[in-house]
Simulated scan of single mutants.
Amino acid sequence: MIRAIRGATTVENNDEQEIIAETEQLLKEMIRQNDVQAEDVVSVLISATEDLNATFPAKALRNIAGWTYVPVMCMREINVPNSLPKCIRVMMTVHTEASQRDVRHVYLRKAIQLRPDLSLTEKSEM
């Protein structure tokens, strides 16, 4: 079965190292919480708000061992008035036996406010 795993995080600055580090942390947490193997991934889509242009957040995926051949694409998030600034969102499409209800979506930092109803991460640890 194919399922999508959502994730989002924020950064404080439009800085290449910070964007890559925070995106990598988000991806690793999504992988950990959903027990994802690279071979089970269809693709990963990563969007960033227009105030983040110092680097491609997708570079973070290449820092994860074994994920070299996973298709990944970056895009710009639409500019909605009053939306969460400096936000990076991820949609990871995977083959899994998990039901939709059992998929663990990951929201870190200020992005928790996007979907507090789905935020299953241990908020105090992030």
Rank of each mutant, 00 (worst) to 15 (best):
A65V: 04
I88G: 02
T10R: 06
E77A: 02
I5K: 08
G66C: 02
H95C: 09
L108E: 06
E16R: 11
Q113H: 07
D102I: 06
R115S: 14
R32G: 05
A65S: 13
E24D: 11
E125R: 14
K110H: 10
E12P: 04
E18W: 01
L84K: 09
N63H: 14
S124K: 15
E97L: 14
G7Q: 11
Q113A: 12
A38F: 04
E24Q: 11
E97I: 13
N34I: 05
R104M: 12
E97S: 15
M126E: 15
S47A: 10
H95V: 12
F56N: 07
I2K: 12
V36W: 06
T23H: 03
R6H: 15
K28D: 09
V36T: 07
L84C: 04
Q17P: 00
I64A: 04
W67L: 04
Q17E: 11
T9M: 03
Q17I: 01
L120I: 10
S124D: 15
R89P: 00
F56R: 07
A111D: 07
R104W: 04
I31G: 04
D102C: 01
R115L: 14
E29V: 03
Q100S: 08
A60T: 02
L118R: 08
S47R: 07
Q113P: 03
S119N: 15
A48D: 01
G7F: 09
A98L: 15
M30L: 10
E22M: 03
T55M: 05
A38Y: 00
L114S: 03
D51Q: 01
I20D: 00
E97A: 15
A98V: 09
M91S: 07
V36H: 06
K110A: 09
W67E: 02
N13G: 00
A65D: 14
V103E: 05
R104L: 11
V106P: 09
I2E: 13
H95Q: 10
P85D: 04
G7P: 07
V72T: 12
R109W: 08
V94W: 06
E97N: 15
D15T: 00
V72L: 06
F56L: 07
I5P: 12
V36R: 05
V36E: 08
I78D: 09
T68N: 13
V90R: 01
R109E: 12
A4D: 12
I19A: 00
L52F: 05
I5C: 10
S124G: 12
L27N: 02
V42K: 02
Q25L: 11
V94G: 05
K86D: 01
S47C: 06
V36S: 06
Q37Y: 13
V42C: 01
V11C: 02
R62Y: 13
K123A: 14
K86Q: 07
Q17T: 08
S99F: 13
Q33E: 14
H95D: 12
M91E: 10
M1I: 11
K123R: 14
S119D: 15
R104A: 13
A54S: 05
V41G: 01
A54N: 06
T9R: 06
L27E: 01
L61K: 03
T68E: 15
I78N: 02
